[in-house]
């Protein structure tokens, strides 16, 4: 007997897909971005927890595609297509990409949140997937959960409570 969890949690640099009535979530997004792709026809939703904007930053073989915006989005679209989605039916919602600390170093990693957002938007434009709503940037951590019944993305922050986009 197959037991279907009502909620699937996606870890950092990971990705997964759920079907209605399951929910999909990820927690503790800082500079990382949680990108949800969903398909209303198939009532499918996928989530990828992106850490870095591009797989060219990787100095080793990429073993976790969800870590990077480019490989993560590709892998997520592929997984959703395997489950019956057609790319032109996909829509996107996203949250995250904050800057948690005002770092002093000249380190490029400081603005990694912003770079993640820009990279994801560029790829989605290229793939012709519309972004219906987003809550990005700022200086706050976010936990998100996507509901396949309502297609709403629930966003929880420490100081501002819960919002839906």
């Amino acid at each position: 007997m197959e037991h279907v969890m009502d909620k699937v949690k996606v870890g950092i640099a990971d990705l997964n897909v759920v079907r209605q009535p399951q929910k999909i979530s990820t927690s503790g997004l800082g500079s990382c971005v949680g990108l949800v792709l969903y398909d209303e026809q198939q009532v499918l939703a996928g989530l990828v927890h992106v850490m870095l904007p591009d797989s060219s930053l990787s100095r080793t073989e990429v073993t976790k595609p969800g870590k990077f915006a480019d490989t993560g989005i590709n892998a997520l679209i592929k997984l959703m297509e395997e489950k019956g989605s057609i790319k032109c039916n996909l829509k996107a919602k996203m949250a995250g990409g904050a800057q948690m600390f005002n770092l002093a170093s000249k380190n490029e990693n400081m603005r990694i949140g912003h770079k993640n957002i820009v990279a994801i938007e560029k790829i989605l434009t290229h793939e012709s997937i519309p972004i219906l709503s987003k809550d990005v940037g700022g200086h706050k951590g976010r936990s998100i959960e996507f509901d396949t019944d309502t297609n709403l993305l629930k966003i929880r922050t420490v100081y501002e409570g819960v919002t839906y986009i």
Partner: peptide
């Protein structure tokens, strides 16, 4: 803030390798 959001800043450099 949330631990995940904070600690991940320290993981970025490591995550490239």
């Amino acid at each position: 803030d949330m631990v995940g959001a904070l600690i991940s800043q320290g993981l970025i450099e490591t995550s490239t390798v």
